[in-house]
Design a protein around this nucleic acid. Structure first.
Lengths: 195, 195
DNA sequence: GTCTATAGACTGATAGAC
DNA sequence: GTCTATCAGTCTATAGAC
């Protein structure tokens, strides 16, 4: 398993994605140059093309990895029994997961228009699958009679917007802990669906 | 009041802002060139600088005009009697106002990071003033005992995120009218604050 | 008020040396 | 695997003609 001197592919690859994530989140995809990313990693611009086909693919890979993480994490999240427990699990999971990776979340929401058409469609499909998870919970809750919602699809979108909104104002070390925030948001979610 | 041939300052100025608004919303501030804006208006790139100091000011002017419109429109909005009527008026106003100008809303949320520090501070101050309007309503509602909210500031942010979220999915001519959407969202707002 | 022309700098991506 | 050098194109903003 000896490795050539100067061979850092297993280190540089992740570093490229990390640097791109941070820079895209801060300045926006279009405003960041490949040279900036390279400088952050500590290589020359040309070297980046060993790790990504082009700038567009770099963005797409970041967004896809984020959505995959999200779906995989929700899949293994403990959900409790009954639709109401499911809903609570979803609300707390969503806030926790999103607060843990603000840069990726920011990019996933803000840079959709910088994706090529086919890349956009792929990310959009993953997003819909995630929304579908909440939608299914709400439908189950309605079937069980534990929630009231005149339009499930609309309630789905409203709740996700509300929960994701935490990322726009929450600051680490602020007035409230993540758990305290989640408690209050869960109360609001419950109220919004008449539970 | 005779006007020189070729003098279109009163027409071209607004057209520049309209074109910039549409293009920034579609492609993002950093991805749009002054040449693109000029082409949309029907002039050469150099002529744009008769109407804006630079690209940054163009963005700032659009965002400031949007926030000024928002605050002015809310100021003259009929609000009814009591905190609960106020809250309903705010929810319906917010949805209606934001759905009427999706491009400006999109830019006001997505392009904050492309503002210079002082321009950012100015826009942020206007945004806080708008948030303060809802916050005051919620505090009044709590004082009247008609709503329940463990943390007013947090409820403010949650409700604004939820209401603004309509813009991300609403499509003209879709399944629901604006009024029907507003009805359902008002129900959710009321539930979220325990009214 | 708008044009053309241009400055000076930056862009994404590639080729070839090591 | 990374570097240097470079291509061909883009960018914002300005100067000066009309």
């Amino acid at each position: 398993m000896a490795r050539k001197t100067g061979s850092h592919s297993d280190i540089t690859g992740p570093k490229v994605r990390e640097a791109a994530l941070a820079l895209f989140a801060q300045h926006g995809f279009a405003a960041v140059s490949m040279r900036q990313i390279a400088a952050e990693v500590g290589v020359q611009a040309g070297a980046l093309y060993l790790y990504t086909k082009d700038k567009q693919s770099l963005l797409y890979d970041l967004m896809q990895a984020h959505m995959d993480d999200l779906l995989a994490a929700w899949e293994v999240e403990p959900k409790g029994d009954g639709a109401l427990a499911h809903l609570e699990a979803f609300a707390r999971f969503h806030i926790r997961f999103h607060l843990e990776r603000p840069d990726a979340v920011f990019i996933a929401y803000m840079e959709l228009r910088n994706l090529s058409d086919e890349n956009f469609a792929a990310i959009e499909a993953l997003r819909r699958r995630y929304e579908g998870e909440l939608e299914a919970i709400l439908r189950a809750g309605q079937a069980e009679g534990v929630i009231t919602a005149p339009d499930i699809r609309l309630t789905t979108m409203a709740l996700i917007a509300m929960l994701t909104g935490v990322n726009t104002w929450y600051r680490e070390g602020g007035r409230l802990s993540r758990d305290a925030v989640a408690d209050i948001y869960w109360d609001m979610v419950r109220g919004a669906v008449g539970a």
